[in-house]
Design a protein around this nucleic acid. Structure first.
Lengths: 200, 200, 200, 200
DNA sequence: GGCTAAGCGAGACGGTACGTCTTGTCTTTAG
DNA sequence: CTAAAGACAAGACGTACCGTCTCGCTTAGCC
């Protein structure tokens, strides 16, 4: 309904900024549209005009921050697949361990549980690119003969990030660089040998 | 402060029951203590007396339900490790795909993001036992010579459940029985062969 | 703090009306802001925004009603002071005996016991005007030679209304028209004769 | 229902004492049965067993205090009716001006507005005796020939106390000793002269 | 360059829920 | 076997926000 052309960028940025600030100060739970509007020096209607929910505002505010990070995390390609995977996983772990990122990331994760639309946006803009890049790197390694030809590189990427995020989100065990290394180690070496398996 | 000896079990169960019902009906977001009290025929104070937050009530309500489920999901041991893992993973997938369980499980997952105490309780009472059981089943297979002796069974369990929950929580891709099978398949066969790896 | 210019008259009148109705139905003690808001179809905040306490709302509601009454009770002046005073006192008695007015009036009287500010407002807007009018009527009679020149007309007014309200408020004896007449009778005839007094 | 013989005097006095204390500390409005029980070191049930309402407890507590005062205020009889009336009215004024008595008296007055039973008890135990005594003193004066034989002594008593309490309760004007004197003066002298009245 | 249709800030509104407090009843515990 | 202690159902308190709705006031952008 409202005309995007006439949208005030001043207001937009003030809202996003106030949201980021307040998120850090009081957390998602106690964050209110009222407070965002007040902090941003903006009428509540201006928020409701452009965002459908608190979650959406928060989401945009976080993406604003996360954007640069994601770009910067382009996968390295040194020719050594093991080293490159180690690098990217350790980096991911380090990021998740940073208190600020931790809070933001958890907030966004909690948020998408109840909002599939946001979920899709998050996946499309942050998660999928990262996994895609990892899978691409694996494929390059495959083409270089460093990996078996029958390896499903997408599945492989999930075998790296899946357990990592599982530990982090569900807190089943502490997350550290050694775990990242162990995942890479397993992926590249294989856990079991075909010869040792019984016939099923 | 209040004396647990004098706690009314009637009220406790009514509250937990009402919470479960309302969760399924309106979801976590629109679940209110007010509504729980009304549905349970209980004073609000009785809820506040025994639980510190809405999250805690929901959590207890969930555990009450999940208890039996968890017990019932004792791992099968048919002697065939592949079949057994397939069974347990497919079961887990099926459970996560059930709308009610999905909603409840997501709710609780979102909840623990901001509450490490709840997180630890969830892990201790639900997640850890399941992974422990899986790891134990793997160890039995190992002792039966169906798996290489150097396999880290705990890591193996994470390689199964990690990617599963990753897909489910972050919605990076649809979750189905085929994916469960693929995870088992990978774990037991190995993705890469040692002989094919380049020297690093 | 709130801006009186933007005040909704619709809400104001609905609140005052609901208050009057509920006062008559359940009395002051069991009157709740909650109920007023519900009956008026108004948010509680709208009440708290404009009135500091339940007493203040009730007070305004009463004055709204009493306003017209007070205006209408302009003193008659038939030329016959005794008849006019009888009329006004009997009218007052009749009003106090009406169950609705009785309840409201008692409520407000109880209320001002603990709130001098409300007291002053009540006196200024209702009580003082009535006594002033009565005193004025007495003065007119005085000027017409119907009363001694040295009579203090203000004191005289208190001698009429004081005993009346005393009976009514403290319930020391039943209130009726005969009592009103007796008070007028005494005021105009004098209880004791100067000639009969002993020297003091 | 409960047996008055078995009533614990210790508890009764503790309750009455706690009530008086709390009344002075927080006033009637914010006085709660809960607080009285806690302060008195008594179960709430013990209060509910013996008193029907908060008002009743307060009432008893206040009467406990007021009792002695009332007894002590026996009317003087010096033979000079004017002086005696002046004394008793001035005393009453002084009492009403004392902050503690003022608060207690107002509380009790507010209370009886909504409780005719309490009203009757107050009247019977405090108000009526005082007015009776005043009327009796007037009658003695009458018999001594100091007052006209046709004076209604009960009405006369109301003409003294009525305006006094009217001023005090409704705060229509400040209460002081001069006003007390003026009332006595009027009662004994008469406001108007019969000879000056017009024929009605 | 003036008109007009927006977006804007402000904030009152009808509501819902919060977490606390008190009421009056009922139950448990200790003397 | 009584009375304190206090849990309970009920419901009002006053506050915080929700999302909607006017208000005037900029502020474009089209005439």
């Amino acid at each position: 309904m409202p005309d995007p052309d006439r949208r005030s960028d001043r207001a937009r940025l003030a809202i996003l900024g106030a949201t980021t600030d307040l998120l850090a100060e009081v957390g998602y739970r106690r964050l209110s549209i009222e407070a965002i509007a007040a902090r941003a020096g903006v009428g509540k209607q201006t928020i409701y005009r452009w965002w459908p929910s608190k979650g959406a505002v928060v989401f945009d505010a976080l993406l604003e921050d996360a954007g640069a990070t994601a770009e910067a995390r382009a996968l390295p390609d040194t020719g050594d697949i093991e080293r490159d995977l180690r690098t990217v996983l350790r980096e991911t772990v380090k990021e998740l361990l940073d208190p600020d990122r931790d809070r933001i990331q958890r907030t966004i994760t909690a948020e998408i549980q109840h909002d599939p639309v946001l979920a899709e946006e998050l996946v499309a803009r942050l998660l999928r690119p990262q996994m895609r890049a990892t899978a691409d790197r694996l494929q390059a390694a495959q083409e270089a003969g460093q990996l078996a030809a029958d390896v499903d590189v997408d599945l492989a990427a999930e075998l790296l990030f899946g357990p990592l995020f599982h530990r982090w989100l569900l807190r089943t065990a502490p997350l550290d660089a050694r775990y990242a290394d162990a995942l890479v180690e397993h992926l590249l070496s294989g856990l079991s040998r075909p010869s040792e398996r019984v016939q099923s």
